[in-house]
């Protein structure tokens, strides 16, 4: 859900900048905000997650 929305924002911003519908800095700002969420949400969407939080690695 979030992945799709943020990805769509990135693509829309890039496309509207290319078509001169949005100033370049505006499109840049949108992508700067949306892209990090897209990358993280994409990973969280397709990863194999079942686990609970564990304590940090403290050495062998």
């Amino acid at each position: 859900m979030g992945t799709g929305v943020t990805g769509a924002i990135c693509i829309a911003a890039g496309a509207s900048a290319a078509l001169d519908m949005l100033p370049l800095w505006g499109a840049g700002l949108l992508i700067v905000v949306a892209f990090p969420f897209f990358v993280v949400l994409l990973g969280l969407w397709w990863n194999a997650s079942e686990g609970e939080g564990d304590i940090p690695f403290i050495g062998y």
């Binding site: 990973g43 397709w46 990863n47 194999a48 939080g53 564990d54 304590i55 940090p56």
Partner: peptide
Amino acid sequence: KFSFKETWIPATA
């Protein structure tokens, strides 16, 4: 590979 791996937030974080 890392993006496919099981992921959580450490309990102490």
